[in-house]
Design a protein around this nucleic acid. Structure first.
Lengths: 135, 135
DNA sequence: CTGGGTGCAAACTCTTTGCATTCGG
DNA sequence: CCGAATGCAAAGAGTTTGCACCCAG
């Protein structure tokens, strides 16, 4: 019938907002710490359900497992190549990018995702310090 | 010492060019069909090596396993949401996209990847035919 | 009550690793 | 020859699934 509200779902959603773009396993870690009875299978099932019903986004970034994002607005991500931290970046609507490719190879393009890579503030600072060390 | 040229590497590279953005497992399938003695581990090791030495790119697209692409120029991909086919799309250098985000959340952005989703020509045609069926 | 949701454990898929053996240069 | 590369099989990691039991509505 209708979707049922359960303790597990509440806890898992809480983990989603408390953690930063977590993987399913990270969500499981958070949840299991507080509510050891919640099983891994439930975490995967519930996260998958969130993604299906639009309550969360599955984020698949280069080099990592699937991550989940409770922010379901259209946006893109920055990925720190050192510590792996992921941050949201707003996706402007006037993105002048789809147009040039609209008929790329005959494909009918419906959507587009952009991903950035670089250094997060912390790692950027650290790398500057390293390079400042006198020889 | 120096990297060694082997029969396996040649075969695996051949698979890479013969197949279209294959996953490691697809490469293994192709290779194993012709040269049953080549092991799965070798396929994974060699593909990883290609990626490390710049002979191929690892492509991680939403919803699929890692794929390999012998085209190592900077470019992006279109992904058919029906059949999963992947095609290359040129990545223009004047992409006016990185600039607006250069300081996104304090990140120092170094690279950017763009991914498109849609319908490949075949699937687009089929979906039109379906919708044309009289009720 | 009833059937959607859950826990558990086993199964699966993809990928990596240790180690003895092979073979390219 | 010598060590990089391979084959094999076992181990890992992440995720899915079957099934009996549980509990939200």
């Amino acid at each position: 019938m209708r979707e049922r509200q359960t303790r597990q779902k509440r806890i898992i959603y809480e983990a989603l907002t408390a953690l930063d773009h977590p993987t399913a396993t990270e969500v499981y870690g958070y949840v299991h710490e507080r509510y050891p009875s919640v099983s891994r299978a439930t975490v995967f099932r519930v996260l998958g359900g969130f993604a299906d019903t639009g309550k969360a986004l599955e984020v698949r970034m280069a080099g990592t497992d699937v991550r989940y994002d409770y922010n379901v607005r259209k946006h893109c991500h920055v990925h720190c190549r050192v510590c792996g931290r992921v941050a949201d970046v707003p996706m402007p609507e006037n993105l002048p990018i789809a147009a040039p490719f609209e008929n790329a190879d005959g494909f009918r393009i419906e959507d587009c995702s952009v991903e950035f890579f670089g250094l997060c503030p912390d790692c950027a600072r650290k790398s500057e310090q390293v390079s400042r060390i006198p020889s």
